[in-house]
Computed example of a mutant assay.
Amino acid sequence: MAFSICLLSWSATEYRNQINAADQLINLQASIRWGTNFLLKAHNTSSNTLYTQVGDANRDHQCWERPEDMDTPPTLYKITSSSPGTEPAAEAAAALAAASIVFKGVDSNYSALLLNHSKSVDKYRGSYQGSCPFYCSYSGYQDELLWGAVWLYKASGDNAYLNYASNNEGWSQAANEFSGLLYTRDSSNLQYATSASMILLVYSNILTAARVNGVQCGSVNFSTSKIKDFAKSQVDYILGNNPMKMSYMVGFGSKYPTQLHHRGASLPSIYNHSAKIGCNDGYSTWYTSSKPNPNTHVGAIVGGPNSNDQFTDSRTDYSHLEPTTYINAAFVGSVAALIGQSKEENILFTLADV
């Protein structure tokens, strides 16, 4: 959640004018505020405590039921001074700091609140690996610390954060989740494609602002236009320009996934089926059904195709059919950049015609 909020906040600051011109800035700010409110509540009990998970994930995964019907234990997990977790704490700090920039000229009191929490949420060093209950992919916390420091510097202007990031940028472990990659792994690969396209588009803007025409990689020069074109190809691929002619965004285009791996989408609404759907009933009746989901989760981007560019629309295939907030969050930045680019090109074409 923190990473998603941070990406959305980055898009809101990087492409504010473009998003505002598309009449979506208020909606984007509302989405960010929803997430930051959640993070604030997770940190409000004590500056030394951050709640990191709600629910027993092992028990939850044994059930396929609607949120309204959930009766599994709402177990709370937290990090404290005695059981630290730098990874989620630093990521939360980055999200709160980035969001504080978004609201600086909109709601100054809320912006200041976010920044204050951001400064205090990550006090104790220690890997989350030892206390993480579930979803514990681990690559060290150095990347989160750099990420958090950079956003804290941008939000506060405090050079201590900039010095920290500058002095530690040479860490031997590469943060390769933000590489310019096209295919990283079979499971939910579009999370890497969306984040890569967002980063490349931001980077091309930086090069343009610095009046640098591209970057040299070995004997090859990648111009800013080539970088943008590659990033755009990722967006186009996701929206249907691919071998399957499949839009991987639900509800977009004429052909898109109909069996999203998502409980709320795959189970009938309480308005159409008011009776409780039990833990096992959801699996036996709806999870294994070959019928399309009764609810269309418009806008959700799924994990995407496999390594052979093939895609089977089956909700049991969670690696390729499950949507995530961080896939969509990165996609927002890419689309916002391309909207701006499209408008600039239209202006140039109009001037050329004149």
Rank of each mutant, 00 (worst) to 15 (best):
L114S: 07
V235S: 03
V250Y: 03
D107T: 09
I5D: 08
H320P: 00
S179D: 11
P323A: 06
G218K: 03
Y138T: 07
Y287N: 03
Y15Q: 13
A329N: 03
S111C: 09
A196G: 08
W151I: 01
Y326N: 05
A337P: 03
G282R: 10
Q234C: 08
S187I: 12
P323R: 09
T45M: 00
V212W: 15
A21N: 03
Y183I: 12
S47H: 02
D317I: 06
E65G: 07
L152K: 04
N27F: 15
A196Y: 06
C279Y: 10
Y110N: 05
A98K: 04
G85H: 06
K245T: 11
I5M: 10
L114Y: 01
A337K: 00
P133G: 11
A209D: 11
D317V: 07
L162G: 01
A42T: 06
H117A: 02
G218A: 06
T36L: 00
N280S: 09
S82E: 14
V332S: 01
S172C: 11
I270T: 04
G304K: 05
S81Q: 13
I5L: 10
W34R: 08
G299C: 13
Y124F: 10
A160K: 14
Y164R: 07
S4F: 04
A149E: 00
I206C: 09
S197D: 05
G303Y: 04
D122L: 11
A22W: 06
K343T: 03
Y287C: 06
G299F: 10
P305D: 05
T312Y: 13
S11K: 02
Q310T: 12
C136E: 12
S233D: 02
K41Y: 14
L113F: 08
K78I: 00
G140S: 06
G251K: 12
A300V: 03
Q142E: 14
A174H: 09
Q216G: 04
Y287H: 06
G218I: 05
P243V: 07
P243L: 15
L200G: 07
Y283V: 13
T49F: 03
I5H: 07
K154I: 14
T13Y: 03
D56Y: 04
H262E: 04
L115M: 13
Y164N: 06
L114N: 05
Y192S: 03
S225T: 12
T312Q: 15
D353T: 10
D353P: 07
Q173L: 06
Q216T: 11
R59G: 02
N44D: 10
Y203H: 15
S289Q: 12
H117Q: 04
N272E: 12
L190K: 01
K228C: 03
G304F: 01
V150P: 01
R16W: 08
Q24Y: 10
S269H: 00
Q216Y: 09
A174L: 12
N308P: 01
S47A: 02
F331R: 02
S289W: 13
I206K: 11
W147D: 05
T312N: 15
N221A: 09
L50P: 05
H320Q: 15
N306G: 08
G303I: 06
H261P: 15
S156G: 07
V298C: 11
V150S: 07
K245M: 12
E65K: 05
G251D: 11
R125I: 13
Q216A: 11
N221H: 10
R125S: 15
V202C: 12
A300P: 00
N241A: 15
N163Q: 15
Q53P: 13
L321T: 06
G35S: 15
R185M: 12
S131V: 09
